[in-house]
Measured scan of single mutants.
Amino acid sequence: MQRVNMIMAESPGLITICLLGYLLSAECTVFLDHENANKILNRPKRYNSGKLEEFVQGNLERECMEEKCSFEEAREVFENTERTTEFWKQYVDGDQCESNPCLNGGSCKDDINSYECWCPFGFEGKNCELDVTCNIKNGRCEQFCKNSADNKVVCSCTEGYRLAENQKSCEPAVPFPCGRVSVSQTSKLTRAETVFPDVDYVNSTEAETILDNITQSTQSFNDFTRVVGGEDAKPGQFPWQVVLNGKVDAFCGGSIVNEKWIVTAAHCVETGVKITVVAGEHNIEETEHTEQKRNVIRIIPHHNYNAAINKYNHDIALLELDEPLVLNSYVTPICIADKEYTNIFLKFGSGYVSGWGRVFHKGRSALVLQYLRVPLVDRATCLRSTKFTIYNNMFCAGFHEGGRDSCQGDSGGPHVTEVEGTSFLTGIISWGEECAMKGKYGIYTKVSRYVNWIKEKTKLT
Rank of each mutant, 00 (worst) to 15 (best):
V199Y: 14
Y201E: 14
V278K: 06
V77M: 04
E53D: 00
N147V: 11
V243F: 11
Q216H: 12
E27H: 08
C28H: 04
T287M: 15
R140I: 08
N151V: 09
G122S: 08
G253P: 08
G432H: 08
T85A: 12
S204N: 07
G13F: 12
G160L: 01
V368R: 15
K459N: 15
N147A: 13
P175C: 04
L163T: 06
F221E: 12
G427D: 01
A192I: 08
R226I: 11
S99Y: 08
C155Y: 01
T332I: 09
T84K: 02
G442S: 11
T194V: 12
S423I: 05
S204M: 15
D315L: 00
G236L: 05
R83I: 15
S70Y: 03
R379Q: 14
F399T: 11
V153I: 11
N393A: 05
K89V: 10
F360K: 15
T389E: 14
E323P: 05
R294M: 02
L103I: 12
Q57L: 03
V154E: 08
E53S: 00
H415G: 01
D338F: 03
Q241H: 15
C382F: 03
M8Q: 14
P301A: 09
F196M: 10
Y22C: 13
K89D: 12
C382L: 03
H400M: 11
C69M: 01
I344P: 03
E420K: 06
E288G: 07
C268G: 00
E285F: 11
R162V: 12
N452K: 11
I336M: 06
E285P: 10
C396S: 02
V181T: 14
G413R: 04
C69Y: 00
S49N: 10
V377H: 03
E79D: 15
Y161M: 04
S354L: 15
D212Y: 14
N104W: 04
S99F: 10
C170N: 01
I284E: 06
L14V: 13
I309M: 10
S49D: 15
K152D: 11
E340Y: 13
R62M: 01
T426D: 00
N135Q: 14
P235V: 07
K455C: 04
T225P: 09
K457E: 09
T215S: 09
K51F: 06
E27T: 12
Q241V: 10
I428F: 05
P175K: 11
D33T: 11
G179H: 01
G50Y: 05
N452E: 09
L383N: 11
E433A: 14
D405A: 08
K247W: 07
L14T: 07
E116G: 12
W431F: 12
C145A: 04
Y441P: 10
F87K: 02
K274P: 14
I262M: 02
Q408C: 12
K168T: 06
L318R: 00
S187A: 14
E116K: 14
P12K: 11
I262F: 02
T81N: 12
P301R: 11
A317H: 00
V353E: 01
N80V: 05
W261P: 00
A266S: 04
A337R: 01
W453H: 00
S406H: 13
S169E: 09
Y22K: 03
Q241G: 07
T389V: 10
S350C: 06
E418T: 07
S329I: 05
P44H: 08
R373S: 10
N328R: 00
C407H: 05
G125M: 02
N393R: 03
E270S: 06
F78A: 01
Y450G: 01
T225W: 11
K51T: 08
G413V: 08
G272Y: 07
E288S: 11
V416N: 04
R191K: 11
K109F: 08
R162C: 05
K152F: 10
E61M: 04
K188P: 15
L211N: 10
E72I: 06
S11F: 13
S350D: 09
D338E: 08
H415T: 00
C155W: 01
S114R: 12
A250C: 07
G160R: 02
E323N: 10
I309S: 07
P333H: 02
R3Y: 12
D150N: 13
L32K: 13
A380K: 11
S255R: 00
H34L: 08
N258K: 03
A37W: 02
T264M: 03
Y450E: 00
Y115W: 09
I299Y: 09
V243C: 05
E208C: 08
L103N: 13
D212W: 10
W356S: 03
P197K: 11
I15V: 09
K152H: 10
K109H: 14
L383S: 15
L14E: 02
I344D: 11
Y22E: 04
S406C: 08
R298W: 03
Q216S: 13
I7A: 14
E420F: 11
K188W: 12
D315A: 02
L376Y: 06
Y22V: 07
P101G: 04
V4F: 13
L52P: 01
F424P: 01
T381A: 11
E73H: 01
N48S: 03
V228Y: 10
Q241A: 15
N343L: 04
